[in-house]
Amino acid sequence: MDWLIGPFEVSFVRHALWATILVSLICALAGTWVVLRGLAFLGDAMSHGMLPGVALASLLGGSLVLGALVAAVAMAAGVTALGRSPRLSQDTGIGLLFAGMLSLGVIIVSHSQSFAVDLTGFLFGDVLAVRGRELGYLVAALLVAGLVSVVGHRMFVALAFDPRKARTLGLRPRLAHALMLGLVTLAIVASFHVVGTLLVFGLLVAPPAAIALWATRIPVIMLGAALLGIGAAVTGLLVSWHLGTAAGATITAVAVSMFFVSASASRLRGHR
């Protein structure tokens, strides 16, 4: 019991636990639609596309979260605009913006001699350094994500399964797509300073993908993804504490491992 409870008696580990629980809930809401619509590449591109905004904010002494938000919104707007071109596939537009934004971020970083530590935090996060104020931001982000998920649920379902049918029903698929991008953007921006941009992608995709192999209803996928994310947070923090590994990376590794266990079990069930 001391092995299980002891680490969470330390204040910064408790803050890290609450932060990762909140991130797991936010990523469950957004990640379900990422998995169902096959937007994993978009999530990866948007998480890396925030680098120019974060780099500029760091160099100018501004808020990293605000810089990330501005860059992510610009990325989402660019994806939406390029996606309307009949001559370009959505993946092409995402790839172009991904390469362009990442290149711009590296150029900005190259002008600073003291940005290496900040860049490491941007990529890998620092979940053990979360403070009470940041927990408040995550709670606010969760409330907004929940509101968008409830209000846009019917539009998101129609868009995920048949955009033409959504248009016929008057559910405005373009607006639904923009809201969905906004939801993904919110999840990434709210989570990057906790687990980092390279690792938030794992929490955004792995838990919903693991549950989608078993569940047949969208609310069940969301609930299951949230529970798996919380389980990964608790397990990852315990492993990180006792083995001395990076907390954010360990949490994400546990989440991805859960997916492979789920996929293996699903395949065995199919054979039987």
Rank of each mutant, 00 (worst) to 15 (best):
M1D: 09
M1V: 11
L4K: 05
L4Y: 10
H15E: 12
H15L: 15
L29S: 06
A30M: 13
W33F: 12
G38Q: 12
G38H: 03
G38I: 11
F41C: 04
F41I: 15
A45W: 08
G49S: 13
M50A: 09
L56W: 02
L59E: 02
G62S: 11
V65A: 08
L66F: 15
A68N: 05
A71Y: 08
A71K: 05
A76V: 13
A77H: 06
V79W: 04
L82R: 14
G83T: 13
R87P: 00
D91M: 06
T92L: 05
G93D: 04
G95A: 12
G95T: 02
A99H: 08
G100A: 14
L102I: 10
G105E: 01
S110I: 03
F115I: 15
F115S: 11
A116V: 12
G121A: 06
G121N: 12
F122N: 00
V127G: 09
A129G: 13
A129M: 06
R131G: 14
L135C: 12
G136I: 04
Y137T: 14
V139Q: 03
L143A: 15
L143E: 09
G152N: 05
A166S: 15
R167N: 07
L171E: 02
L179I: 13
V184T: 07
I188T: 05
F192Y: 05
V195M: 01
G196A: 10
L199M: 08
L204E: 01
V205M: 01
P208W: 04
A212H: 13
A212N: 14
L213A: 15
W214G: 09
A225S: 14
T235G: 01
G236V: 06
H242K: 14
L243E: 13
T245S: 15
A246D: 04
A249Q: 10
T250Q: 05
A253N: 02
A253M: 12
V254P: 04
M258W: 03
V261N: 02
A265P: 11
A265T: 09
S266C: 08
